[in-house]
């Protein structure tokens, strides 16, 4: 009777550690992009075999994208503290016309971000649009500012998203980037 009870408890707890469903899949897809060091990168090939935590940004975004990127940093730091490795962080710009590799590099440097396992990506607008469309992220231009110098910058209404991708390139869960619960995504990463 005791043995049955113990088995029941073990099965119950095993069941609680549920698997994350597959939301979408990058299978057979490949996109040519450029990283913050101006090196050509094939996504998602370059992260093959790694769990990926990805967000979608534009660097002229003064409020939400830095918030989302800061949450990426908090996730990275927590994983490091808990000695969870094999996780790659990716920030894809949906404003590649402004976000050159140099701009992305400076965005990371001024925030002292650890780029040892974090890559910023930009590229041809057609390619970045194809990726965000694939993953269900929307980004449309809204207001703009024209400076006295004539320089014009755009702002976007965009999906506030951090995305978890497994080692096989399958999207497993979406989170709100600016308000994500760091403990939740770290627990989810451990399930993969």
């Amino acid at each position: 009777m005791k043995l049955r009870y113990h088995l029941f408890v073990i099965i119950l707890f095993w069941g609680c550690k549920e698997r994350l469903p597959v939301v979408d899949d990058f299978k057979n897809l490949s996109y040519k992009l450029t990283n913050q060091n101006n090196q050509e990168i094939i996504f998602p090939d370059f992260v093959k075999g790694k769990i990926v935590v990805m967000n979608f940004i534009f660097t002229n975004c003064p409020d939400i994208c830095p918030l989302s990127s800061n949450n990426m940093r908090l996730i990275q730091e927590k994983l490091k503290r808990e000695k969870v490795d094999n996780v790659q962080f990716v920030s894809l710009s949906f404003d590649p016309e402004n976000d050159t590799p140099e701009v992305l590099r400076k965005f990371a440097d001024i925030r002292n971000l650890d780029l040892s396992n974090w890559t910023f990506l930009t590229g041809d607008k057609f390619v970045t649009n194809a990726i965000i469309k694939k993953v269900g992220v929307m980004a449309v231009t809204s207001d703009s500012t024209i400076f006295k110098s004539g320089r014009k910058i755009y702002y976007y209404i965009h999906t506030d998203r951090i995305q978890l991708i497994d080692i096989e390139g399958k999207i497993r869960k979406n989170y709100k980037g600016s308000t994500i619960n760091v403990d939740e995504i770290v627990a989810d990463i451990k399930k993969l």
Binding site: I64, L67, M138, Y155, D160
Partner: peptide
């Protein structure tokens, strides 16, 4: 799940109250 940004216009600060400018809100 979408976020945008717009000019805030004039912001009333009521008597005996606090108004917070914070990430994800007014700034």
């Amino acid at each position: 799940d979408k976020i945008g940004m717009r000019p805030a216009g004039r912001i009333a600060i009521k008597p005996k109250s606090e108004f917070e400018f914070k990430p994800g809100g007014f700034h």
